[in-house]
Amino acid sequence: MHIEFDSTVFRWDARPETWLFTDVPEELSEDIREVTGPFTRGFGAVRVEATVGGTTWRTSIFPSSSGRYWLPLKRAVREAESLHEGGPVTVRIEVLDA
């Protein structure tokens, strides 16, 4: 499953000093949940290959209390792609757990 979406970079309130994320739109999150069903890992995580700009990496997306998946944006990605809190981001994801 391949998806692409536009979102915003945000800081996780529980760990504001270190963690920046973007969230997968609600409808796409529902599609991912349908496809991955029994393949989720601890905490409902789903393995993905994510691409932002020219940077591709493997990570997991995590379900949030809102029902949307969150994609962590590690520092190397943020620096390489000039991402900052509150800024826009276009993401391509390939779901690996399906």
Rank of each mutant, 00 (worst) to 15 (best):
V52T: 05
G44Q: 01
R11Y: 01
D31R: 13
L83H: 04
T36R: 06
T56A: 13
G86V: 00
T18L: 07
G37A: 15
V35Q: 15
P88C: 11
S60L: 09
V46H: 02
G54V: 04
S60R: 09
W19T: 11
H2V: 13
A45R: 12
W12K: 11
T36Y: 03
T36W: 00
V77M: 09
W12A: 13
T40Y: 10
P88S: 15
I61P: 00
S60T: 13
M1Y: 09
T8K: 14
S60A: 14
L73H: 09
E30H: 11
T56W: 00
S65V: 12
E27A: 15
V48D: 00
S65M: 13
R58Y: 08
G44R: 00
E81Q: 05
V24N: 10
G44W: 01
T36K: 01
E81D: 07
F43Q: 10
E85W: 00
R11F: 01
L71Q: 08
A80E: 07
E79K: 05
F10E: 05
T59W: 14
R75C: 05
E34W: 04
E85S: 07
D6M: 07
R75P: 10
G67L: 07
R68P: 06
T55V: 14
E94T: 11
G53M: 07
F43T: 10
A50D: 02
W19R: 03
L71F: 14
R78E: 06
T90V: 08
W70L: 15
D23R: 15
F39R: 15
R15D: 15
L28K: 12
P25K: 00
F43L: 13
R68M: 10
T56R: 05
F5L: 01
R11N: 10
S29W: 00
F10G: 11
L20C: 12
E94S: 12
A80S: 12
V46R: 06
V91A: 06
T51I: 03
S64W: 04
M1G: 13
L96C: 05
G37C: 11
A50T: 06
S65G: 15
P25L: 02
W57N: 07
I61N: 02
V48S: 02
T90D: 04
I93H: 03
V89I: 01
S82E: 14
G53I: 03
G86H: 00
V95H: 02
G37R: 14
L83K: 01
F5I: 03
T90A: 09
S29A: 05
I61K: 11
E94K: 12
H84P: 06
W57Y: 11
G87T: 09
F10P: 09
L28V: 04
R47G: 04
R33L: 04
A45Y: 03
F62G: 05
F21D: 14
T36L: 00
D13T: 13
R15H: 08
S82Y: 08
G67F: 01
T59Y: 13
R58K: 14
V24G: 04
S60Y: 02
I32N: 04
V9G: 07
S7F: 02
G37W: 11
G87N: 11
T51K: 10
S66P: 02
E26F: 01
G67R: 03
T59G: 05
F39D: 15
D97G: 06
F62W: 13
V24D: 09
F10S: 13
R47D: 12
